[in-house]
Design a protein around this nucleic acid. Structure first.
Lengths: 147, 147
DNA sequence: CTTTCTGCAAACGATTTGCAGCAGC
DNA sequence: GCTGCTGCAAATCGTTTGCAGAAAG
């Protein structure tokens, strides 16, 4: 999505949940939109955005952005939560989790794998009554640099 | 694995990392071994084990048990971390994560899905240099009761 | 102008840690 | 008997929250 299209989507979805469109919120979405991986809050605070974000505002705004369906929160084994743009603003992807440096990288979803998972999901829903909303696939190991 | 076999494995792996075999540690492993899903620390404390575990000891012992390769720690979106027996003591499985009640249930791995994922993993390792140690697949949605 | 957002500083709560006494080996 | 485990209570630290002033609409 173009930066402009993204800006419009942000404004629209915030309005839809009765939240105001503010410079802080735009800045946070912009930072996430330019990353190829989920970011921690320290990383968001350190990223350049032409304005100094207060930590508490970032925490509060990420909750709002998540409610608005603009952002997804991930939790992993390390100390900080991580945030990425909602999948309908990016592309369906999975994650490589590095045990060495703690970094998480996005990886595009594989079509054949998605089909297998969809078949397995349907079988599970049939036998358990579970209603799937989305899935997560993570490969956990060591990235090239840490290997 | 039988309860006795498990007890021996626990003793052996603790010894291997220079840790003592204690009643608390056996009790924690036993509780996890009788659950069909990962448990939080409050759940472990509430489970009957014929002995009163101190919260701090449970936290400390779970770290030791994880080091010994007996237990795996999971983190999800809710407030508490969850613990389950290491996969070589159970069977390879994936998780159903319920957004309603927060519960996580084990689900056996599907052979065809595993093959697809293995193929995708090899391709990813080839192109990125990532070294996979294990993977996670979660279905996130609502369980039968919460649907 | 009114309502909501922001930044600061204080509160919260899951997890970790210091310490003195008890248990594994 | 040493050494390391246990329980208690206090500390830690990522995250949340109360409040007074600033910005969105």
């Amino acid at each position: 999505m173009s930066d402009d299209g993204l800006t419009n989507t942000v404004a629209a979805r915030l309005r839809a949940v009765n939240q105001r469109s503010t410079a802080n919120r735009e800045a946070i979405v912009s930072v996430l939109g330019h990353a190829s991986r989920p970011l921690t809050i320290p990383e968001i605070l350190d990223a350049p955005h032409g304005r100094d974000l207060a930590q508490s505002s970032v925490y509060r705004n990420l909750v709002v952005l998540e409610d608005a369906g603009l952002v997804r929160r991930l939790v992993t084994d390390d100390e900080f939560a991580r945030y990425e743009l909602a999948e309908d603003l990016t592309e369906h992807h999975h994650h490589l989790v590095c045990l060495g440096c703690g970094r998480i990288e996005d990886i595009p979803a594989d079509a054949h794998l998605e089909l297998s998972l969809q078949a397995a999901t349907e079988e599970i829903e049939r036998t358990t009554g579970f209603r799937t909303q989305h899935h997560r696939i993570d490969l956990v190991g060591l990235c090239r640099r840490c290997a």
